[in-house]
């Protein structure tokens, strides 16, 4: 069982992925803060419930025992929430820079929390192995 299959770690990985994707959308919003008719986008909140089992990621088939196994980065698609921005300027742009800055900061902090948790989980495993 690869280390990334441990539920705790895979959950954190999904969370980090979500924040990464969100950072990309926020960067897009800030870059387009002066583009006419641009509406800000954001990610839909992450769905951590187990009620919707996600399709298993595509796996490279191993036809020979000597092949190295590995999952193709089947990136979980996160829903995009296009309903951002209610303060529309005359040019049709609805990006609020202060709002975006708050989101960027929050996103960064949550991401750091996830990476710290990841590190600590790895340390737990190390402790269990008696190596630290």
């Amino acid at each position: 069982m690869p280390i990334s299959d441990i539920p705790m770690l895979s959950m954190l990985r999904t969370k980090m992925h979500w924040h990464q994707e969100r950072q990309q959308l926020l960067a897009q919003n800030v870059a387009n803060s002066d583009t006419p008719t641009y509406r800000p986008v954001d990610l839909a909140p992450m769905d951590t419930s187990q009620n919707h089992p996600r399709l298993p990621p595509l796996v490279v088939r191993q036809t020979d025992p000597a092949h190295v196994g590995g999952a193709l980065g089947g990136s979980p698609e996160f829903g995009v929430d296009p309903h951002g921005g209610y303060e529309v300027r005359p040019a049709g742009n609805a990006v609020n820079l202060e709002d975006e800055m708050m989101k960027v900061a929050a996103n960064q902090m949550d991401y750091e929390a996830a990476t710290t948790l990841y590190t600590h989980s790895l340390n737990l495993i190390k402790t269990a192995l008696g190596k630290s």
Binding site: M101, A105, Y111, E112
Partner: peptide
């Protein structure tokens, strides 16, 4: 100027997140 600074902020945040990811390696 304000928009420029906002973009700089995003770059700083993204860089910091990237650094934290690399820091997992040091665990």
């Amino acid at each position: 100027q304000r928009s420029y600074e906002a973009n700089l902020n995003v770059i700083t945040a993204a860089r910091r997140m990237l650094e934290r990811t690399v820091a997992i390696l040091n665990a």
